[in-house]
Amino acid sequence: MANPAGTAVVPPEAQPEDTSTPTKVVGTGTPASCTSAALADAVEAGGTITFDCGPEHVTIVLDDTLRIRNNHTAVVLDGGGTVTLSGGGQRRILYLNTCDRALGAGARCQDQTHPRLTLQNLTLADGDATGDTEEGGGAVFARGGGLKVVNSRFLRNRCDENGPDLGGAAVRAFGQKQPVHVVGSTFQNGECSNGGALSSIGTSWVVLNSVFKDNKAIGRGANPARDGEPGGGSGGALYADGNEFTVKIAGTLIEDNHANEGGGAIFFVSNDRSGTMVVDGSTLRRNPSAGFETPGLKGIFFLGATEVTITGSTIE
């Protein structure tokens, strides 16, 4: 799942969680025992969740979106490298929102730093948030709390095709007070108005030793939307907007992504110009921006505090 050429050092906070003593094991050793209902019950209860679905790879097609309760300190889902969670092309896979009172009252809405959701050794495929009232997050929507993704794959996820500021075919992160860590993971064939893989507002990213390939920002009209157009189309792989956030890309391959507007690879706009971006030991190539990009930075549109810091990287 990881970029084989990635050599970025992974800090302790971005390492996999210990799942040696799980709170709940989904399944009793056979694929048939690993049901959507059993998984939903485990997620409802929270804690550390692993799977026992037999020796072969298994796909669990969800009957409903998995919803994280706001009273949990942490929820860890570890698929052991043999589990795919599928939205079946009909629904989002995971939903975390500390401002959603239906999930229990959050202490401080999106200022709340828990629950912290960790997804590791999983594949999340065919999630679809099209038409959902929350803006984006075809596989995962995370507002408030915390999020970490380790050694996982996101394949063929979708969200709405138009909208000036919605996005994140794979992940939409909103108002996170701590960086979202993405480590050793692959994002492929995602499509959304903005952010063919990742999208955020007011959230920092640390992306290490990962791969982004063949993702598309398919909206048109940019942000704010041009007259007569619905808006969107920026950030083929990653769309980051808001104030006071940072993006670090290290040991990562971003290739063959596309944006109808700006940033075929990365769209970064810090509204108050306080945000910074670092690209280290990474390769960005063949990420066309059909509309606009920052001169000298192929596939990147950047408005921030200073110029992008680039070390040991290829951008072409």
Rank of each mutant, 00 (worst) to 15 (best):
T35K: 05
N162S: 13
V211S: 08
V75S: 04
M1N: 12
A222Y: 13
R69V: 13
A37N: 07
P22A: 05
L39W: 11
I60Y: 04
P16H: 10
P22E: 07
D41E: 15
R108T: 12
V150W: 08
V9T: 15
D241H: 10
G106F: 12
V211N: 08
F292Q: 11
R101F: 04
S33C: 02
G54I: 01
A197D: 04
G104F: 10
A197T: 07
G251K: 08
Q15Y: 07
T306K: 15
L147P: 00
D78V: 01
T35H: 06
D78R: 09
L253N: 09
G79W: 14
F245L: 07
G146R: 08
V83Q: 05
R108G: 07
D132H: 10
C34S: 01
P224S: 05
S289N: 02
S282Q: 07
D63Y: 04
P288K: 11
V43S: 04
K216L: 09
V58Y: 01
L103I: 09
G231Y: 04
G47S: 08
E244H: 15
A250P: 01
G291I: 11
M1F: 13
V247Y: 09
V83P: 00
D126Y: 13
F267R: 07
A217G: 02
T252P: 00
E17Q: 14
K177F: 00
D128E: 05
G236R: 13
P12D: 14
V180T: 11
V76L: 05
S36C: 01
T50C: 04
N260S: 06
C53W: 00
D18I: 06
T133I: 07
C99K: 10
P55S: 08
V58P: 00
A129N: 10
G236T: 10
Q90K: 15
G27M: 00
T311L: 13
N260F: 04
G304M: 11
T314S: 12
A217Y: 01
T28S: 15
T113M: 12
T65Q: 09
G137P: 02
G87P: 04
E293L: 00
E161T: 14
A142F: 11
A142I: 09
A259K: 01
I93W: 09
V61K: 14
N70I: 02
N209H: 08
L62M: 12
T276Q: 15
L122W: 05
Q112W: 08
E261N: 03
I266L: 15
D64V: 12
A237N: 01
G6A: 09
I218H: 03
G281D: 14
L85V: 03
I49K: 02
I310K: 14
V180H: 03
N209K: 06
C34Q: 10
L253T: 07
R69T: 08
G190H: 06
T203D: 04
G184I: 06
T294H: 06
V207A: 11
T35C: 00
P4Y: 09
L103P: 00
L62A: 06
A37S: 14
S313W: 08
N70M: 03
L297I: 05
N157D: 04
A14C: 15
N260K: 13
G195R: 06
A2Y: 10
R153A: 11
T28G: 04
L297P: 00
D256Q: 15
S210E: 06
S204M: 07
L62E: 03
L198E: 03
